[in-house]
Design a protein around this nucleic acid. Structure first.
Lengths: 173, 173
DNA sequence: ACTAACATGTAAAGCGTTACATGATTTA
DNA sequence: TAAATCATGTAACGCTTTACATGTTAGT
């Protein structure tokens, strides 16, 4: 099994759910599911990840053009791809999450600001986290209807509580 | 004020603490303070960030060679740099944290694994988070001795509780 | 028919890491 | 004095985004 960056594995894992999917739909789906706990890659990166997966023999693609000039390319996971992603899921070492917390960064350098302004920033942040938590809750509910989405539901619930905890921490600060 | 990526601002903000500092020492300091809530950049990136800051006029540097062939370059923030970082801290929009949570990713694609293996992975992760939490607690205590590190202490305490919450969430899953 | 939004990519540029090179300092 | 580690970078490469180009569909 080749050594790939985590984002490639994430895309390949998403392919393992669906029969055939286009880069565009993959991105939309990533925004809906992945982005609560994993930076959702841009369109162009998803396109190049798909090409890379195809180069490695982990996916195949075909052009679907129904009476139009510009078609769209549909990707499908191969047995080799399914093997590879299964191996990665089971055997990759557990590495720590990557976090870039811009708000905490600004609090850390609070001597450049004023307590009042810092409080404003934290309040803005709390409102944002609140909104994210609610959206995660909605998506988590939606995941309940499909029995195949049990694991999605678990992580979405995790995300929901994660943001709740984050909000409380921001309040405490 | 120029538009820079957050990592550049983080480096500039660290310069705002010290009189003069080398890239190497900056990296060591980042590992000690920043890395609990902001991905600590590699040596080479810190070196190039410093060069970039100098190009923008936000820092100056001089070579300090005490009787040796190879000297080391010391960087110092300029008044323009201090202005810029102050403006950024106060006026940048609050953007959400960037998170890449590899463990959650693997849980999300749990259908490729087995419940037993997932449990193992989560336990490994809990142990790692535990260790991080303890280290954050130690560093937070250490920050108490210097009165100038009050804000550092706030965010380190935040980080400590953050990891505690993360551990509990992993347990719940 | 026109416009706005949707969809599908490519190209260029910048962010960030890993690998490498090399000098200085400690330690066995 | 040899080896190991600390310190200071550079070069090459790959990851990722932003900007651009262009075709398609839906609303007005």
């Amino acid at each position: 099994v080749v050594n790939l960056p985590p984002t490639s594995w994430a895309v390949l894992a998403m392919l393992s759910f669906e029969e055939e999917i286009s880069g565009y739909d993959l991105k939309k789906w990533a925004d809906w599911s992945l982005r609560y706990f994993y930076w959702s890659p841009s369109f162009s990166q998803i396109y190049s990840e798909l090409k890379k997966l195809e180069r490695h023999g982990y996916a195949t693609s075909r052009v679907d053009n129904d009476n139009t000039i510009r078609g769209r390319r549909l990707y499908k996971i191969t047995p080799a791809g399914r093997d590879a992603i299964t191996t990665w899921t089971n055997e990759a070492p557990v590495d720590p999450p990557v976090l870039k917390h811009h708000v905490m960064l600004r609090v850390m350098f609070g001597h450049l600001s004023s307590p009042a302004r810092l409080k404003e920033i934290l309040n803005d942040y709390i409102a944002e986290v609140d909104a994210l938590e609610r959206r995660a809750a909605i998506d988590s509910e939606a995941a309940k209807v499909e029995p195949g989405w049990a694991y999605s539901q678990i992580v979405l619930q995790w995300a929901e509580r994660y943001y709740a905890a984050e909000r409380d921490l921001a309040r405490a600060a």
